[in-house]
């Protein structure tokens, strides 16, 4: 698993870089974020939840069965929305209310 950062969407706030538990994200010369060590991503999605521009997607590596779907989150009205874009263009969304406990 790793992440892909859309350079054109990045606003250079550096929040993803701050929060990465592996210090894997850096800012380039123009101040935009990139993942310097893509193989070292744990897949924790901390950066994705921080990004105000929704510029970061995570995906499963092909070696663990990944087929190219991309995930990001958006938070609106206190609801964390997990948005999964599949390669065929279809989109799935799961909304999570952080105030609700897991059932399991």
């Amino acid at each position: 698993m790793s992440i892909a950062i859309d350079r054109n969407k990045c606003v250079g706030c550096g929040k993803c870089r701050t929060v990465c538990p592996g210090s894997l994200i850096k800012l380039d010369d123009s101040g935009r974020a990139f993942i310097k060590y893509p193989r070292d991503c744990w897949g924790c999605t901390s950066c994705i939840k921080e990004c105000p521009a929704y510029a970061i997607r995570f995906y499963l590596g092909a070696d663990i069965g990944g087929a190219g779907s991309l995930v990001h989150t958006e938070k609106t009205d206190g609801i964390l929305k997990w948005i999964i874009e599949k390669p065929d263009g279809s989109v799935s969304q799961i909304d999570i209310d952080p105030k609700e406990s897991n059932k399991y």
């Binding site: 499963l60 779907s69 995930v71 999964i84 599949k86 799961i94 999570i96 897991n102 399991y104």
Partner: peptide, 21 residues
Amino acid sequence: ESLMKAYLNMAPSQTLKWIES
């Protein structure tokens, strides 16, 4: 549905796998 949510709250890759496949 509950499992999909529970995994997003700790190991999102598993939910992605279920949805992707």
